[in-house]
Amino acid sequence: MSRVTLMALQVLVAVVTLALWQVFSTVPVFGKVLLPPFFFSNPVDVFSQIVKWFSTGVIWKHLAITLWESILAFVIGSAGGILVGFWFAWQPRVAAVFDPYVKMVNALPRVVLAPIFALWFGLGVWSKVALGVTLVFFIVFFNVYQGVKEVPTTVLDNGRMLGMNERQLMRHVYWPSALSWMFSSLHTSVGFAVVGAVVGEYLGSAAGLGYLIQQAEGVFDVAGVFAGMFVLSAFVILIDMAVTAVEKRLLVWRPTAAARD
């Protein structure tokens, strides 16, 4: 399939879906509207809601808040994951002792922590960051841990034979290996940072995309809920594109970097 045909078909799917949605929510079929506007709204209303948000500029503040929370969650979660990942990989005994607890906390659906975090950190930015951190941390932690453990023995021996001391092995062998594992899960961890932020906002906040959706839902403004969802998807896609660009740059040395996606 050529690029143009593919694009055309992709656009077609969107157009048909939106058209069907619009028709079934406004035009009665055999005297009955199949998608009652109260529950399903319609594309025109949703679109005008989005336009209103952007034209009045209300949306920017919420986007900025969500973005900021996601970034903080990602940075703090990654830093923690890297530190603990290295620590555990260096100290197998520590890893063995903590292993059941790590598994336990990781198995916990993080959403249930949101009320606790709201209590501890208030309704502001930090309770959302905390939620995102608990999600990002484990992904980065597992990957860094694996990355340090999975350095091929030959590469390690080569480093030693070339005269590297422990510090240099760290810098030239363990660190790049761990980072490459971490970067390979960059899409997941960044995605989870956003999830943490939005879910946190949804469960209690005064700003952000999750707050926007929750507010609309509270007054049965279905158009507002859908509009919030669309803005959120676009936001996530933009972030994902940024991550892909960063990844291409950082993982040039990897044979799979170009072949993936």
């Binding site: 091929p152 030959t154 590469v155 021996d157 080569n158 480093g159 034979m161 070339l162 005269g163 590297m164 001391n165 240099q168 030239h172 062998v173 790049p176 290996s177 490459s180 040395w253 990897r254």
Partner: peptide, 27 residues
Amino acid sequence: AGYLFQADALFPWKTAIDNVAIGLEIR
């Protein structure tokens, strides 16, 4: 001693020249 391994032992994250230069750099 310098050791030439049977398996690939180059650092995959370094370019050819960086792989060669590293032995001097760490000194």
